[in-house]
Design a protein around this nucleic acid. Structure first.
Lengths: 200, 200
DNA sequence: CCCAATTTTGAACAATGTTCATTTTTTTCT
DNA sequence: AGAAAAAAATGAACATTGTTCAAAATTGGG
């Protein structure tokens, strides 16, 4: 009856991930500390290392759950409209909304850097690719002449552009644009792009 | 004759900035260490703090010089073509080129985070805005009906989109696109946008 | 050449990620 | 149930860093 061990271990894993997510949500990735996570998860610092290889590994798992959340948001947005144009706009707007409402959690997704020369594990990269699919679907309808490969590239480019706008705007380091203007701009931007397709 | 003191201090400032830039260029911002900077600049760790308030301050000055470099690149790109369309494409392509050829220095510009609640100094924010001007000039010709304010916003949005594409592509965390495809995609992207303007 | 002011120094401190010998808990065996 | 073995949890100790500051070295003026 050693399933009890596994269960406890799994409970600890979740407690640690939740504690880390909570900390990140409240104070951002930069303020995340191994000792704080352990305290919140009611375990010793050392225990963290019996379940994860290091703090980066914990962050990776937090990010993984964020991607799942984002996936749901994208799916809902995809169902919120019929025309592919409207779907692309909805995806962008919902992405902006998610980023705004979950700023720290969202930015951890992109600001987290693994140490020099440690590539993100394959399973985590795959999680990102799933998001691209939600863009590819409406895009395929707008550009039926693109093959699978070109479609994948276009999806990434479109995502990157939207992400850039959301990112530089929200992080607001410089290049600040008033918050309530961003959505308007984003919608106009997507529409400009789509109109550009038509004329190609 | 106390100008000598000032001169020495200034020399130290420059030595430290150069050492830091060199380190960042070679190993990236994440590997930057106060002790390494001091060693390269031939001074004690403590001396660094007599000239800069902390390591972040040093990075800020490295980034400042990077922005000056980028400014020159943008200026040259602006003069490389006549039509505003071509200028916008040239700006994007040169931005991509600069980022590719100066990866670590460029990414320090955007990955450097000041500690919680310490906004970038006003002089540094201003340096960023100068870059936006190079985009606004050709954009104004394409969209003559935009007032100054709307033009500034559009410039930022366009920059953010291009930056997003360059950024997610180059950092290649996920969402990887083959390096040699990025330029092609970027050019097509800018053209799509501009075509979108026409149809508005 | 000497003294006071200034600058430079690097050892010491604090914060933090990570390890590992020791203690505690759980499982297995009789 | 109780003891021995296995596994897991613990937190003190270590290594690495940014930063400080008392002491030493340097400098400029008289």
């Amino acid at each position: 009856m050693s399933g009890k061990r596994e269960a406890k271990k799994e409970a600890l894993r979740q407690a640690i991930i939740n504690a880390a997510r909570q900390r990140i949500a409240e104070s951002g990735l930069d303020e995340l500390r191994a000792r704080d996570i352990a305290k919140d998860a009611d375990c010793a610092v050392g225990s963290l290392y019996t379940v994860f290889s290091d703090v980066d590994d914990v962050v990776l798992h937090v990010n993984s759950s964020t991607l799942t959340q984002l996936g749901s948001v994208m799916e809902a947005a995809s169902k919120s409209a019929d025309s592919p144009q409207e779907v692309l706009v909805a995806l962008a707007v919902e992405y902006l909304k998610f980023a705004t409402e979950n700023r720290n959690i969202w930015s951890a997704l992109f600001n987290h850097r693994l140490p020099e020369g440690a590539p993100a594990p394959e399973w985590h990269v795959a999680e990102h690719l799933v998001l691209m699919r939600w863009i590819a679907i409406p895009l395929a309808k707008l550009r039926p002449n693109l093959d699978e490969k070109a479609l994948a590239v276009q999806s990434r480019i479109l995502f990157a552009a939207v992400h850039g706008i959301v990112s530089l705007s929200l992080e607001g380091r410089f290049v600040a644009v008033r918050r309530r203007d961003i959505e308007t701009q984003l919608i106009q931007f997507i529409n400009d792009i789509i109109r550009g397709f038509d004329k190609e």
